[in-house]
Design a protein around this nucleic acid. Structure first.
Lengths: 305, 305
DNA sequence: CATATCCATAGAAAACTCCTATATGTAAAA
DNA sequence: TTTTACATATAGGAGTTTTCTATGGATATG
């Protein structure tokens, strides 16, 4: 069943005649005549009773007209929704975040964004960097902010926001009065570490390597699979740890944990905003990207110096 | 938004690629490429992300695909319903009947028809002949069985079924023993009549006129607007009446009323099956028409002799 | 009975659809 | 990295379809 002809038929019924319908559709009457006849041939059913003055649908015609109305209403609605999606009035935004940015950075950005774009549903998935990247590739996510570095030309990667890893000890630790320690001294105390492969641990190891120090396995009290658990371990007095400042900002301020300066200077790390290069961003995602960059770009620029 | 292109887009998403969709649609891949591109231009929105290996919809594309699925499902359903309507498997039949045929003939026919075509909803409207004819003209009814004669080439009129008007008197009436009376004798007893213009009255007046008799207004006890009321009047002993045999068959059999033979022979009248000539009958109506004619045609043939 | 109005038909012009051939790009294999 | 396989994009032309103009036929109205 040809949709164009169905549309002609629909208008003919709606206007109660070929000539009137032709006017509405900006076509000529013979065109509509032919279209309806072809539709009737196609369906093998007479759809209209042609009376002299006007035209009325047969029972088959009434049935079909009901369907046609629903079909063209759907089309109209689809166009309207596409338009409002194109102008960014509504839509869905699927975000991903690795642990630190997903916990301490994105929630605030999402809140601000949602306030400005109440019609856009935002979903934020927290997961390991590798999972996030995979979901981006399969388009289960559109945009993500992660901690690990990505070297894949399939993704557009924009450095964005930064974080400092700090050495923390319990507030009553022997070092808690010392303002600064050398990197090698980390081997002199029980140390809690994140798991091998985590971004935090990579940054720490890179710093130690540049100083010619390697971690003494004897000192590792625990390998912990999460920043919160790591923090709890230090709070419990198990030892020292290197952790994102964002994760312990509260505890440091309240004096529950003490912070030490590393001799080699602050341990900086970057976060990265990324999305699949070939997937066109939705208007919503484009807007969120702008928001993230306007907030997080300046912080990175200072790191580059 | 062109429906043909929407259909192409729908299949491309459904099959996950242009080439596969082209195979399914019996078209070539460049055709689909062009169609989707034109659809995207038309809507001003990118609908598909063309990755190297395969193709996936953008968020706009997913939205549109949902609508497309519903639209084409509706079309499919419409075709299915039209087909079952064309083969007469289901549908609606709007019948009309004037008093006598609508009360004493059509109900039985409708019952038989419904038993054979359980899927077809039948509605039967009883009304005066003029109302029925008007409803046929406006297509509120498809087919009707009436008593009055119609002279309008807009209708196909088929004589069908017949009825006899009989003279009835109360069972204890002075005439109730007499087997036959002359027409002019009707003026010698109180007479109940149907209203002027009713088909029954026209038939009676025509017979009297052919005998050179006219009704004596003095004798008319009542002009009654309905056969049932007329019958009750005679049963109550108000006088004699001329009425359809069908309306009093039970009373005659039970001896509650007595029947007289007119000297001029039985007063026959015909019924007519009719429908608007220009309106194509539905399959259901066509079948009902056949049923009516097979039952009612023979009875009429005998009248023509 | 003439007139106005509406639908059907015929044939030609315009538009579009679809195809073939080819280019380009991507992902997996050598 | 280069090759191979596979997928989409592009260009131009053949074929079909759509649409138009002109005209004829049927019906209701004055």
């Amino acid at each position: 069943m040809d949709m164009r002809r169905l549309e002609v038929f629909y208008h003919v019924v709606e206007e109660g005649g070929f000539t009137r319908a032709a006017t509405v559709m900006n076509l000529t009457q013979p065109t509509l005549s032919a279209a309806v006849r072809q539709l009737e041939d196609d369906l093998g059913t007479q759809l209209l009773n042609r009376l002299g003055r006007e035209v009325s649908p047969t029972s088959a015609g009434r049935l079909l007209h009901g369907y046609a109305r629903r079909i063209f209403a759907l089309r109209k609605k689809a166009i309207a929704e596409l338009t409002s999606l194109r102008t960014g009035d509504q839509g869905e935004l699927l975000l991903g975040g690795s642990t630190i940015p997903g916990t301490y950075i994105l929630p605030r950005l999402v809140a601000d964004f949602s306030r400005q774009h109440a019609q856009i549903r935002v979903s934020l998935q927290l997961a390991a960097t590798a999972t996030i990247v995979n979901d981006l590739r399969q388009q289960r996510l559109e945009l993500a902010l992660i901690g690990g570095e990505i070297n894949d030309r399939a993704f557009e990667v924009i450095p964005c926001f930064s974080d400092e890893l700090v050495v923390i000890v319990p507030f009553d630790h022997q070092w808690s009065t010392g303002a600064s320690i050398a990197e090698q001294e980390l081997n002199n105390v029980p140390l809690l570490l994140r798991e091998r492969g985590s971004a935090s641990r990579k940054v720490l190891e890179a710093r130690l390597e540049s100083r010619g120090v390697s971690l003494d396995p004897e000192n590792m009290v625990a390998e912990v699979g999460g920043n919160e658990a790591l923090k709890q371990g230090v709070l419990a007095g198990l030892g020292a740890a290197v952790i994102s400042r964002m994760a312990v900002a509260g505890e440091l301020q309240r004096g529950e944990l003490a912070e030490l300066q590393l001799a080699g200077g602050p341990l900086q790390r970057r976060f990265y905003l990324l999305h699949a290069r070939r997937v066109k961003l939705s208007v919503a995602a484009e807007r969120f990207k702008s928001l993230v960059l306007s907030r997080g770009r300046t912080a990175v620029d200072s790191l580059d110096k």
